[in-house]
Write a protein that binds this DNA or RNA. Structure first.
Length: 276
DNA sequence: GGCTTATCCTGGGCGC
DNA sequence: TGCGCCCAGGATAAGC
């Protein structure tokens, strides 16, 4: 499931493959995948545009065209943007097909149909069409500091796990990396967010950077449904320390990894290394 | 206002 | 083999 590192890997791949490419046609196979405008308008408005800039904000992919308009995408749980040739086999979960003038194809595949695409006119900013972008917290790789977290978490009574998943607090962290970061920091996921000491917050920020950077280097995670823009699975799942390891031994102390339901999500932790 | 829970959606895994 | 149930989770709406 794509989080910040996976989106970053997809973005880098798309930039390599599609910069300067002109879209010839668009076929929407599942109308639900288009958030804005209507699927019909989307298919009519996008052809003829040329990809120029590629930017990531949190888990959003923001792709600008040379005329100032743009294409935004959120992969949600199972979405993938894959560049293929027209000879390659079409995935059965193909939702939107972009054909380039050069013969390349961009496939938006999405098994669970949670992913969304937006077309943004040249006179409009991405933030005007996607309000979530206005409220999004700092980028963890570049702008996050422990002072910011300390200030924001001081009055939060919710769990630290729920807080890490809040995109308005920090952009881009999802369930997998939140669990990994908390394990490395030695913090139980159910710890009250306001209870973390300054030292723990400093360590938390360091570990957020470390885990996300490691995951990008590994090409993202392949736990469940993620693949990059070349259709290749990542390698980070081989390095996950707690996520998806319920009942297996902790890599530090050999206690069995446990799982609890928290904020509607499963939280994986070591009961000895992450005491409440 | 802060927080939790339900909802959307599909396929894989499991038990019967 | 086939059926039904449960689970996975990001964003958002609804409810407390």
């Amino acid at each position: 499931m794509p989080e910040l590192p996976e989106v970053e890997c997809v973005l880098r791949g798309l930039e390599k493959s599609l910069a300067g490419e002109r879209i010839e046609s668009v076929k929407v196979l599942r109308e639900q995948s288009i958030a804005c405008p209507s699927a019909k308008s989307f298919a009519k408005l996008v052809p003829g545009r040329v990809f120029s800039d590629f930017v990531r904000r949190g888990k959003y992919l923001l792709m600008s065209f040379d005329d100032g308009s743009g294409l935004a995408c959120h992969l949600r749980m199972s979405g993938a943007l894959v560049v293929k040739t027209k000879e390659e086999e079409k995935d059965k979960h193909l939702r939107v097909l972009f054909k380039m003038q050069s013969g390349k194809e961009l496939h938006f595949e999405d098994m669970r149909v949670f992913g969304r695409l937006w077309f943004v006119k040249s006179s409009t900013k991405f933030q005007e069409v996607i309000p979530a972008l206005n409220k999004m917290g700092p980028e963890p790789l570049t702008d996050l500091t422990h002072n910011y977290l300390q200030e924001k978490l001081a009055t939060r009574s919710q769990s630290i796990k729920a807080a890490l998943l809040d995109q308005e607090l920090i952009a881009g962290i999802g369930n997998i990396y939140a669990d990994e970061v908390l394990f490395l920091t030695g913090v139980h996921p159910q710890t009250r967010a306001s209870d973390l000491s300054t030292a723990k917050l400093k360590k938390l920020v360091e570990n957020i950077r470390f885990v996300l950077e490691q995951a990008i280097v590994a090409g993202g995670s392949s736990i469940r449904d993620y693949k990059d823009s070349f259709g290749v699975n990542g390698n980070y799942q081989n390095e996950a320390l707690v996520y998806g390891r319920v009942g297996l031994s902790c890599t530090k102390c050999e206690r069995k990894i446990e799982r609890v339901k928290l904020a509607g999500r499963s939280a994986h932790f070591c009961p000895r290394c992450q005491r409440r």
